[in-house]
Amino acid sequence: MIRSHFLNMVIFSGLVSVFFAFLTQSDRRERLKVMTILCLSMIVLSLIVAYAMYFFPSSR
């Protein structure tokens, strides 16, 4: 069981990035580029959204 939110997110982003890189690209260099861009975008955007949600009041 992986209890860390961040670790789960990084693993998920990594797996999805590898999947889409291999699905959409055939050149090795292009795959690596897509993989890196996708993985970093998912992690960074998630952190931005998570930080933005901090300012929303809780419903409770």
């Binding site: 069981m1 992986i2 789960n8 693993i11 998920f12 797996l15 590898v18 999947f19 291999f22 699905l23």
Partner: peptide, 19 residues
């Protein structure tokens, strides 16, 4: 490519089971 897809989907699935 088939092998990579197999490993990625299998890993994703078993991480789901593990969690």
């Amino acid at each position: 490519r088939g092998l990579v897809f197999f490993l990625v989907v299998l890993t994703t699935f078993f991480l789901g089971i593990l969690n």
